[in-house]
């Protein structure tokens, strides 16, 4: 099977210019690869850099050194060195992301938020909205909420909107940042099923899951980020 994403020698530190330029290393020489049709899970205690790795992969955090090679439309592209324009193109077509929190856009309905990634890829509006409805009903979001902006939704409701938005497209790579954190058991099970379907469709997934049961249900590979922990600064 293909490896649509290969990470090598990835290093990240934060330089706090407001605190006399303290340097905080968070990831040192991370290396792993994602297989198409499999779900890899980043493991390790909190603060070990799981989230930072995910954000670097998505282009959300800058990379100090190393490579993130992504198969984007058959071309190997280094996400760590890509231009903003390329990063946006990769996000649109190749690399999906379900964040921990929904960034709410004022006045846009839940239905439209979920449909947006499809519309951005030039899909027909009716089709996008139909897919959006399917996903929201599958995630048990009450239908009366669909036409409302999610600003006033509960954490779990917002999270389901977020998941639907991330799963609506057919991105070959999907990053999941604690998608099930605020979900009840029923909906966790739905997400587990959805992840299984993505795998069956040949998508490479990489996630952070705090629930033991979800992790066990989806993980094909556990990547222990403590292996990439920077040597303790003296």
């Amino acid at each position: 099977m293909a490896t649509p994403l290969v990470v090598s020698e990835l290093c990240k530190s934060f330089t706090m210019h407001l605190r006399d330029g303290i340097r905080l290393p968070v990831v040192d020489k991370a290396r792993f690869a994602l297989q198409a049709g499999e779900c890899a899970v980043l493991g390790g205690p909190s603060g070990a850099g799981k989230s930072s790795i995910l954000k670097m992969l998505y282009g959300n955090y800058a990379v100090d050194s190393g490579q993130i090679i992504i198969d984007h439309h058959g071309t190997l592209t280094d996400m760590a060195a890509a231009s903003p324009r390329d990063v946006l193109a990769i996000r649109r077509d190749t690399l999906g992301y379900v964040s921990q929190f929904l960034r709410v856009v004022p006045r846009v309905s839940a239905l439209d938020i979920v449909a947006e990634p499809l519309l951005a890829r030039g899909r027909d509006r009716a089709e996008a909205l139909a897919r959006s409805r399917d996903l929201l009903s599958r995630l048990n979001l009450p239908e009366r909420l669909w036409d409302l902006p999610p600003a006033t939704f509960s954490g779990g409701e917002q999270q389901r909107v977020n998941i639907a938005r991330g799963f609506i497209t057919r991105h070959p790579i999907l990053l999941l940042d604690e998608p099930t954190a605020s979900l009840d058991a029923t909906n966790r099970a739905v997400v587990i099923d959805m992840i299984a379907e993505k795998k069956a469709a040949g998508v490479a997934l990489l996630g952070i899951f705090h629930d033991q049961d979800v992790r066990e249900a989806v993980a094909d590979q556990i990547i222990d980020v403590t292996d990439f922990a920077p040597a303790k600064a003296a």
């Binding site: 954000k55 282009g59 959300n60 955090y61 800058a62 990063v87």
Partner: peptide, 9 residues
């Protein structure tokens, strides 16, 4: 740079 990168990192 990319807007979310500049704001988040």
């Amino acid at each position: 740079g990319l807007t979310d990168r500049v704001l988040d990192d």
